[in-house]
Design a binder for these strands. Structure first.
Lengths: 215, 215
DNA sequence: AAGCAATCTTGACACTGTCCATATTGAGCA
DNA sequence: TGCTCAATATGGACAGTGTCAAGATTGCTT
C-alpha cells in the first residue's frame, strides 16, 4: 500500500508494489520478448507474463486488447529494428555497388534473424498474418519494411548501368532466399551453425551475378 | 449401447458406436490434417479431434503419446508426399537438363506447399523442430527428403558438363529460396496469388543461370 | 474538492493437455 | 470351447490457459 509520487522522478525504481505501476506497457513488451526467447512460443502466457511483472492476470488487457494484439506489438518492434538493419548498408550513393557490399547485406539480414529470432518468428509467422486481426500499425510497419527493402534493391540495380534485372521481381525472389535461409536456421532445421557463413556467401554471389545478368 | 460383431465385416460401416473402432489411428491423422486446414493450428485440439471422431477425449492417447507425437505423425506423411513431388521431375537420365525442367520443378515445389499448407507448416515449423521431442521416424523421413533433393540437384549439375557450381551449396541456397517463397505465400505475407507464377519463373531463371555460371 | 477516465484487481467460465484408475474388447493359448 | 492377457477405450480429475464482467483504486483535469 506504500504510495509514492511519480510524475517527477523516474517511476522505475523497483521495490514495493506501486500505485499504478506507470510503466507497464513497455515492460510487458520486453518481458514477452524475453519469455519467447527463453521458453519459446509455448512458454508465453498472459498469466505468467503478468505474474512475472507482479501484476494481476488481467492487468495487461488494459494495454493490449488481446494476446494477439500483444504479439502484434512485439512484432511491430521487430520491424522497426529490421528496418534499421536493411537501411544501413555500406552503400555510397552514386558509386557502383560492390560484391562485398551485397555479401555484407546478406550477412546482416541473416544475423538479424538469428539474433532476434523471437521477433522474427512473430514478424513473419502465420500466427499473425493469417489471423485477420493484424493491428493496423503493424501492417503499416511491415509494409514500410518491405518498401525500404525494395528501395535498397532498386539503388543497387541503378548503380549498375548495364543491369537489366527487373528490380521488383529480383527483390521478391532475393527476399525469399534471405527469408528461407533465416527460417531454416531459426526454426532449427539447419542446425549446422558453421554453414551459415558459407550459405550466406553463396547466396550473395548468386544475387551479385543476378544483378549483372543480361536478358 | 448397441453392440455388433465385427471381425468378419468391414469395421468401417458408420452408424452406431462400435466395439473397438478398429481404424482410429488413420482417422486421427486425417481429421487432424482436416482441422488444421479448416481452422488453422489454433483450431486443432486433442479433445475436439476425439469428439469429431466420436471417441472419448483420451482415446487418441493410445495411438499417439502426445499431441506433439500426433503432429509428428502428420508431418511425416507430409514428407512422404513431398518426396514424391521432388523425385518426379521431367528429367531424362543422361540428357542435359533444360530450363523448362527447372521451371517446372520450381512450380511443383511451390504448388505443393500451397496445396498442402497444413502439412508444410508442420514439416518445417519450429513447433516440431525446436522441441527436442522429434519422433525418430520423422527425423528419418525428413532427412531422407533432403537427401532426395540434393540428389536431384546433383543430377542437374552433372548433366551440364561445363557447370562449376558446388552442388551441395547450391542445393542449400536454392532450397532456401523455394522454402522462403513457399512460407511467404502460405503464411499470408505475399497475398497476391497471381505473383506466384512470376516469382516462380524468376527464381527458376536464377537457378538456371546459376547452374551455368563459371567460377 | 469533485468527477472522470485510465488503470488495476478479483471472480468466473469455458476450454485445453494429460495423468490415473477402470472398464471393455479381441486374439492367442489351454 | 473357455481363460487369460494385452490392446484399446472410458470418465474423473488437475493444473493451466485466454478472456469477459463488475468492482476497486488511482491520477489528471476542471
Amino acid at each position: 500500500m506504500t504510495n509514492r509520487q511519480s510524475s517527477l522522478v523516474e517511476p522505475c525504481e523497483s521495490g514495493d508494489k506501486p500505485y499504478h505501476h506507470g510503466d507497464l506497457r513497455r515492460q510487458i513488451l520486453d518481458e514477452a520478448a524475453r519469455l519467447l526467447k527463453e521458453e519459446g512460443e509455448a512458454g508465453l502466457s498472459m498469466r505468467k507474463l503478468a505474474q512475472n511483472l507482479g501484476v494481476s492476470r488481467t492487468a495487461p488487457y488494459h494495454h493490449f486488447k488481446d494476446k494477439q494484439a500483444l504479439l502484434c506489438g512485439v512484432a511491430e518492434e521487430g520491424f522497426r529494428r529490421l528496418r534499421e538493419v536493411v537501411r544501413t548498408p555500406p552503400y555510397v550513393e552514386g558509386a557502383e555497388i560492390s560484391e562485398a557490399a551485397v555479401r555484407l547485406f546478406v550477412h546482416r539480414y541473416v544475423q538479424f534473424s538469428i539474433d532476434n529470432a523471437e521477433y522474427y518468428e512473430l514478424m513473419f509467422g502465420a500466427r499473425l498474418w493469417k489471423s485477420e486481426q493484424l493491428t493496423e500499425s503493424l501492417r503499416l510497419e511491415a509494409h514500410n519494411a518491405f518498401k525500404v527493402y525494395i528501395e535498397q534493391i532498386r539503388l543497387w540495380q541503378q548503380s549498375i548501368s548495364t543491369s537489366t534485372v527487373d528490380a521488383l521481381r529480383f527483390a521478391q525472389v532475393s527476399w525469399s532466399t534471405l527469408h528461407g535461409m533465416s527460417r531454416l536456421l531459426i526454426d532449427g532445421i539447419y542446425l549446422d551453425a558453421t554453414a551459415i557463413n558459407v550459405m550466406s556467401d553463396t547466396a550473395a554471389k548468386m544475387f551479385w551475378q543476378q544483378l549483372y545478368i543480361q536478358a
